[in-house]
Protein backbone atom coordinates (compact mmCIF):
# COMPACT_ATOMS: atom_id res chain seq x y z
CA UNK A 1 0.00 0.00 0.00
CA UNK A 2 2.63 2.49 1.03
CA UNK A 3 5.02 3.74 -1.65
CA UNK A 4 8.49 2.23 -1.80
CA UNK A 5 11.02 3.52 0.68
CA UNK A 6 14.37 4.97 -0.26
CA UNK A 7 17.45 4.22 1.81
CA UNK A 8 19.49 7.24 2.84
CA UNK A 9 22.62 7.86 4.82
CA UNK A 10 23.37 10.96 6.89
CA UNK A 11 26.29 12.81 5.28
CA UNK A 12 26.28 16.05 7.23
CA UNK A 13 24.82 17.47 10.42
CA UNK A 14 25.09 21.15 11.35
CA UNK A 15 23.53 23.33 13.97
CA UNK A 16 22.04 26.14 11.86
CA UNK A 17 20.82 28.20 14.80
CA UNK A 18 20.26 27.08 18.40
CA UNK A 19 17.63 24.32 18.36
CA UNK A 20 17.58 23.82 14.59
CA UNK A 21 19.63 21.09 13.01
CA UNK A 22 20.44 20.92 9.32
CA UNK A 23 20.68 17.43 7.93
CA UNK A 24 22.06 16.28 4.58
CA UNK A 25 21.02 12.81 3.41
CA UNK A 26 22.43 10.98 0.40
CA UNK A 27 21.44 7.75 -1.30
CA UNK A 28 23.36 4.84 0.20
CA UNK A 29 24.85 4.17 -3.27
CA UNK A 30 25.65 7.84 -3.89
CA UNK A 31 23.33 8.05 -6.94
CA UNK A 32 21.26 11.15 -7.67
CA UNK A 33 17.99 11.19 -5.73
CA UNK A 34 14.48 11.69 -7.18
CA UNK A 35 13.77 15.32 -8.11
CA UNK A 36 10.91 17.12 -6.40
CA UNK A 37 8.85 20.30 -6.85
CA UNK A 38 9.75 23.30 -4.66
CA UNK A 39 7.92 23.14 -1.33
CA UNK A 40 7.90 19.33 -1.21
CA UNK A 41 8.68 17.37 1.94
CA UNK A 42 10.45 14.19 2.88
CA UNK A 43 8.80 11.72 5.27
CA UNK A 44 11.35 10.04 7.50
CA UNK A 45 10.68 6.73 9.26
CA UNK A 46 11.27 7.27 12.95
CA UNK A 47 11.62 3.89 14.67
CA UNK A 48 9.83 3.10 17.93
CA UNK A 49 11.82 2.91 21.14
CA UNK A 50 13.74 5.39 23.23
CA UNK A 51 10.54 6.74 24.77
CA UNK A 52 8.49 6.48 21.55
CA UNK A 53 5.67 3.94 22.02
CA UNK A 54 5.27 3.42 18.27
CA UNK A 55 7.07 4.21 15.03
CA UNK A 56 6.51 7.71 13.66
CA UNK A 57 6.57 9.14 10.16
CA UNK A 58 7.77 12.73 10.35
CA UNK A 59 7.52 15.12 7.42
CA UNK A 60 10.26 17.71 6.88
CA UNK A 61 10.35 20.31 4.12
CA UNK A 62 13.21 19.92 1.67
CA UNK A 63 15.34 23.05 1.49
CA UNK A 64 18.10 22.27 -1.00
CA UNK A 65 18.59 21.61 -4.69
CA UNK A 66 15.43 20.03 -6.14
CA UNK A 67 16.56 18.77 -9.55
CA UNK A 68 18.38 15.43 -9.48
CA UNK A 69 19.91 16.30 -6.10
CA UNK A 70 22.85 14.34 -4.79
CA UNK A 71 21.55 14.98 -1.29
CA UNK A 72 18.31 15.91 0.43
CA UNK A 73 18.54 18.74 2.94
CA UNK A 74 16.11 19.29 5.79
CA UNK A 75 16.17 21.64 8.77
CA UNK A 76 14.62 20.29 11.92
CA UNK A 77 13.55 22.24 14.99
CA UNK A 78 13.92 20.17 18.15
CA UNK A 79 10.59 19.89 19.94
CA UNK A 80 11.12 18.60 23.44
CA UNK A 81 9.38 15.28 24.21
CA UNK A 82 9.26 16.47 27.85
CA UNK A 83 6.73 19.09 26.77
CA UNK A 84 4.52 16.69 24.84
CA UNK A 85 6.26 16.33 21.45
CA UNK A 86 6.08 12.85 19.94
CA UNK A 87 9.87 12.52 19.82
CA UNK A 88 10.58 12.47 16.09
CA UNK A 89 12.58 15.68 16.05
CA UNK A 90 14.56 14.62 19.13
CA UNK A 91 15.47 11.45 17.20
CA UNK A 92 16.66 13.56 14.24
CA UNK A 93 18.76 15.65 16.60
CA UNK A 94 20.47 12.48 17.84
CA UNK A 95 21.45 11.26 14.35
CA UNK A 96 25.13 11.18 13.43
CA UNK A 97 27.02 11.18 10.15
CA UNK A 98 26.93 7.67 8.71
CA UNK A 99 23.57 6.71 10.27
CA UNK A 100 21.13 4.99 7.91
CA UNK A 101 17.62 6.41 7.51
CA UNK A 102 14.59 5.11 5.61
CA UNK A 103 12.28 7.63 3.96
CA UNK A 104 9.34 7.91 1.62
CA UNK A 105 10.22 9.68 -1.61
CA UNK A 106 9.43 13.43 -1.57
CA UNK A 107 5.78 14.43 -1.61
CA UNK A 108 4.45 17.74 -2.89
CA UNK A 109 1.45 19.47 -1.33
CA UNK A 110 2.74 23.04 -1.53
CA UNK A 111 4.12 23.74 -4.98
CA UNK A 112 4.30 27.26 -6.43
CA UNK A 113 1.48 28.18 -8.83
CA UNK A 114 3.36 28.38 -12.11
CA UNK A 115 1.00 30.80 -13.86
CA UNK A 116 1.25 33.32 -11.00
CA UNK A 117 3.00 36.51 -12.11
CA UNK A 118 4.45 37.09 -8.66
CA UNK A 119 4.85 35.21 -5.38
CA UNK A 120 4.47 36.64 -1.88
CA UNK A 121 6.06 34.28 0.66
CA UNK A 122 5.22 34.75 4.34
CA UNK A 123 6.86 32.53 6.93
CA UNK A 124 7.49 32.31 10.65
CA UNK A 125 10.03 30.32 12.63
CA UNK A 126 10.89 26.92 11.21
CA UNK A 127 8.05 27.46 8.70
CA UNK A 128 10.64 29.21 6.57
CA UNK A 129 11.90 25.86 5.19
CA UNK A 130 9.45 25.24 2.32
CA UNK A 131 9.56 28.95 1.45
CA UNK A 132 13.36 28.75 1.12
CA UNK A 133 12.77 26.01 -1.44
CA UNK A 134 10.25 28.24 -3.27
CA UNK A 135 12.62 31.20 -3.24
CA UNK A 136 15.45 29.06 -4.59
CA UNK A 137 13.24 28.09 -7.53
CA UNK A 138 12.03 31.66 -8.15
CA UNK A 139 15.62 32.94 -8.13
CA UNK A 140 16.62 30.26 -10.63
CA UNK A 141 13.72 30.92 -13.00
CA UNK A 142 13.71 34.68 -12.62
CA UNK A 143 10.20 34.75 -11.16
CA UNK A 144 9.17 37.81 -9.16
CA UNK A 145 9.07 37.02 -5.45
CA UNK A 146 8.99 38.79 -2.12
CA UNK A 147 9.50 37.16 1.27
CA UNK A 148 8.54 38.26 4.78
CA UNK A 149 10.08 36.24 7.60
CA UNK A 150 9.14 36.56 11.26
CA UNK A 151 11.58 34.91 13.65
CA UNK A 152 13.22 35.47 17.02
CA UNK A 153 16.47 37.36 16.86
CA UNK A 154 19.39 34.99 16.38
CA UNK A 155 17.05 32.00 16.15
CA UNK A 156 15.91 32.38 12.53
CA UNK A 157 17.24 29.55 10.39
CA UNK A 158 18.47 30.27 6.84
CA UNK A 159 18.50 34.07 7.13
CA UNK A 160 21.81 34.23 5.20
CA UNK A 161 20.62 31.72 2.59
CA UNK A 162 17.53 33.83 1.90
CA UNK A 163 19.53 37.04 1.61
CA UNK A 164 21.99 35.37 -0.76
CA UNK A 165 19.14 34.20 -2.98
CA UNK A 166 17.00 37.31 -3.15
CA UNK A 167 18.69 40.18 -1.29
CA UNK A 168 16.38 43.16 -0.98
CA UNK A 169 13.22 41.12 -1.70
CA UNK A 170 13.66 39.47 1.69
CA UNK A 171 12.57 41.19 4.90
CA UNK A 172 13.40 39.56 8.24
CA UNK A 173 11.53 40.87 11.27
CA UNK A 174 11.76 39.99 14.94
CA UNK A 175 8.78 41.89 16.24
CA UNK A 176 5.22 40.67 15.76
CA UNK A 177 3.60 44.12 15.76
CA UNK A 178 6.06 45.45 13.18
CA UNK A 179 5.56 42.30 11.14
CA UNK A 180 1.78 42.64 11.17
CA UNK A 181 2.01 46.29 10.11
CA UNK A 182 4.34 45.44 7.22
CA UNK A 183 2.22 42.46 6.19
CA UNK A 184 -0.86 44.68 6.08
CA UNK A 185 0.95 47.17 3.87
CA UNK A 186 2.46 44.57 1.53
CA UNK A 187 -0.87 42.71 1.13
CA UNK A 188 -2.38 45.90 -0.25
CA UNK A 189 0.36 46.49 -2.78
CA UNK A 190 0.68 43.23 -4.75
CA UNK A 191 0.10 43.32 -8.50
CA UNK A 192 -2.92 41.38 -9.74
CA UNK A 193 -1.66 37.89 -10.50
CA UNK A 194 0.25 37.49 -7.23
CA UNK A 195 -0.23 34.34 -5.15
CA UNK A 196 0.54 34.11 -1.43
CA UNK A 197 2.24 31.18 0.34
CA UNK A 198 2.47 30.88 4.07
CA UNK A 199 4.01 28.44 6.49
CA UNK A 200 4.41 28.68 10.24
CA UNK A 201 2.56 27.91 13.45
CA UNK A 202 -1.21 27.60 13.06
CA UNK A 203 -1.91 30.89 14.87
CA UNK A 204 0.52 32.68 12.58
CA UNK A 205 -1.05 31.30 9.42
CA UNK A 206 -4.50 32.23 10.75
CA UNK A 207 -3.24 35.80 11.18
CA UNK A 208 -1.88 35.87 7.62
CA UNK A 209 -5.16 34.54 6.20
CA UNK A 210 -7.21 36.99 8.23
CA UNK A 211 -5.12 39.95 7.11
CA UNK A 212 -5.23 38.74 3.50
CA UNK A 213 -9.02 38.45 3.60
CA UNK A 214 -9.18 41.98 5.02
CA UNK A 215 -7.12 43.17 2.08
CA UNK A 216 -9.55 41.55 -0.36
CA UNK A 217 -7.57 38.41 -1.22
CA UNK A 218 -9.78 35.52 -2.33
CA UNK A 219 -9.09 32.01 -0.97
CA UNK A 220 -7.78 30.77 -4.32
CA UNK A 221 -4.72 33.02 -4.07
CA UNK A 222 -3.77 31.73 -0.61
CA UNK A 223 -1.64 28.63 -0.17
CA UNK A 224 -0.60 27.23 3.18
CA UNK A 225 1.68 24.43 4.30
CA UNK A 226 0.20 23.04 7.48
CA UNK A 227 2.44 21.66 10.20
CA UNK A 228 -0.52 19.57 11.22
CA UNK A 229 -3.55 19.87 13.37
CA UNK A 230 -2.30 21.75 16.39
CA UNK A 231 -2.94 20.37 19.81
CA UNK A 232 -5.88 18.06 19.19
CA UNK A 233 -7.57 16.99 22.37
CA UNK A 234 -7.49 13.24 23.13
CA UNK A 235 -11.19 12.95 22.26
CA UNK A 236 -13.95 10.82 23.72
CA UNK A 237 -13.91 7.02 23.60
CA UNK A 238 -16.03 5.35 20.92
CA UNK A 239 -16.67 1.94 19.38
CA UNK A 240 -16.00 0.69 15.87
CA UNK A 241 -17.36 -2.26 13.95
CA UNK A 242 -15.06 -3.49 11.23
CA UNK A 243 -15.23 -6.80 9.35
CA UNK A 244 -17.86 -8.05 11.80
CA UNK A 245 -15.61 -7.32 14.73
CA UNK A 246 -16.17 -4.74 17.47
CA UNK A 247 -13.29 -2.53 18.63
CA UNK A 248 -13.12 -0.02 21.45
CA UNK A 249 -11.19 3.19 20.79
CA UNK A 250 -10.28 4.80 24.10
CA UNK A 251 -9.64 8.51 24.57
CA UNK A 252 -6.12 9.43 23.50
CA UNK A 253 -5.93 6.60 20.94
CA UNK A 254 -6.70 7.31 17.30
CA UNK A 255 -8.92 5.16 15.10
CA UNK A 256 -5.85 4.45 12.99
CA UNK A 257 -3.90 3.15 16.00
CA UNK A 258 -6.86 1.05 17.15
CA UNK A 259 -7.24 -0.51 13.69
CA UNK A 260 -3.53 -1.25 13.48
CA UNK A 261 -3.47 -2.80 16.93
CA UNK A 262 -6.36 -5.07 15.88
CA UNK A 263 -4.23 -6.26 12.96
CA UNK A 264 -5.78 -4.22 10.13
CA UNK A 265 -3.44 -2.68 7.63
CA UNK A 266 -4.33 0.93 6.80
CA UNK A 267 -2.19 2.96 4.40
CA UNK A 268 -0.98 6.02 6.26
CA UNK A 269 1.71 8.61 6.18
CA UNK A 270 1.61 11.83 8.15
CA UNK A 271 -0.71 10.62 10.92
CA UNK A 272 -1.79 14.18 11.59
CA UNK A 273 -4.69 14.80 9.22
CA UNK A 274 -2.73 16.43 6.42
CA UNK A 275 -1.67 13.94 3.77
CA UNK A 276 -4.92 12.15 2.96
CA UNK A 277 -3.41 8.68 2.90
CA UNK A 278 -5.43 7.02 5.70
CA UNK A 279 -8.91 7.81 4.40
CA UNK A 280 -11.27 4.99 5.35
CA UNK A 281 -14.87 4.38 4.32
CA UNK A 282 -17.71 4.81 6.77
CA UNK A 283 -20.86 2.68 6.53
CA UNK A 284 -24.52 3.51 7.12
CA UNK A 285 -24.46 2.07 10.65
CA UNK A 286 -22.28 4.96 11.81
CA UNK A 287 -23.18 7.84 14.04
CA UNK A 288 -21.97 11.38 13.30
CA UNK A 289 -18.26 11.87 12.54
CA UNK A 290 -16.11 14.47 14.27
CA UNK A 291 -13.83 15.46 11.38
CA UNK A 292 -10.53 16.95 12.59
CA UNK A 293 -8.36 16.68 9.49
CA UNK A 294 -7.14 19.33 7.07
CA UNK A 295 -7.53 17.11 4.01
CA UNK A 296 -11.19 16.40 3.26
CA UNK A 297 -13.22 19.14 1.60
CA UNK A 298 -16.48 20.36 3.10
CA UNK A 299 -18.32 18.40 0.40
CA UNK A 300 -16.42 15.22 1.32
CA UNK A 301 -17.38 15.71 4.94
CA UNK A 302 -21.00 16.44 4.09
CA UNK A 303 -21.19 13.20 2.08
CA UNK A 304 -20.50 11.38 5.35
CA UNK A 305 -19.01 8.31 3.73
CA UNK A 306 -15.38 8.58 4.81
CA UNK A 307 -13.02 9.98 7.41
CA UNK A 308 -9.30 10.34 8.06
CA UNK A 309 -8.54 7.61 10.56
CA UNK A 310 -5.50 9.32 12.09
CA UNK A 311 -7.33 12.27 13.67
CA UNK A 312 -11.10 12.01 13.24
CA UNK A 313 -13.45 10.29 15.65
CA UNK A 314 -17.08 9.33 16.26
CA UNK A 315 -19.48 11.62 18.03
CA UNK A 316 -22.39 10.50 20.22
CA UNK A 317 -25.95 11.69 19.62
CA UNK A 318 -28.66 12.20 22.23
CA UNK A 319 -29.97 8.67 21.88
CA UNK A 320 -26.94 6.59 20.90
CA UNK A 321 -23.30 6.31 21.91
CA UNK A 322 -20.45 7.25 19.60
CA UNK A 323 -19.98 4.49 17.05
CA UNK A 324 -18.53 4.00 13.57
CA UNK A 325 -18.95 1.28 11.00
CA UNK A 326 -15.63 1.28 9.18
CA UNK A 327 -15.23 -0.17 5.70
CA UNK A 328 -11.62 -1.00 4.84
Amino acid sequence: MSPARISLVVTEVTELVPGVRGLALAATDGAPLPSYPPGAHLVLDVPAGDGRPRALANAYSLTGENVEPLEYRVSVLRCDPATGAAGGSAWVHALEVGDKVEAHPPRSLFAPVRHASRHLLVGAGIGITPLLSHLRSHARWGAEAELLYLCREGLGAHVEDLAALAGESVTVLHDRAAFTALLRERLRDQPLGTHLYTCGPTGFMDLVHLEAADAGWPAGRLHAEAFGTADLDPGEPFTVSVDGEELAVPAGVSLLEALEEAGHEVANLCRQGVCGECRVGVGPGSGPVLHRDLYLTDEDKAAGDCLMACVSRAEPTDDRPAHLEVIL
Binding site: L187, R188, Q190, P191, L192, G216, W217
Partner: peptide, 10 residues
Protein backbone atom coordinates in the same frame (compact mmCIF):
# COMPACT_ATOMS: atom_id res chain seq x y z
CA UNK B 1 -8.47 49.62 -14.85
CA UNK B 2 -6.30 46.51 -14.53
CA UNK B 3 -3.09 48.17 -15.75
CA UNK B 4 -1.84 48.87 -12.23
CA UNK B 5 -4.44 46.87 -10.31
CA UNK B 6 -3.55 45.24 -7.02
CA UNK B 7 -4.79 41.96 -5.54
CA UNK B 8 -8.14 42.80 -3.94
CA UNK B 9 -9.59 43.94 -7.26
CA UNK B 10 -12.84 42.46 -8.59
Amino acid sequence: DLQDARVGHR
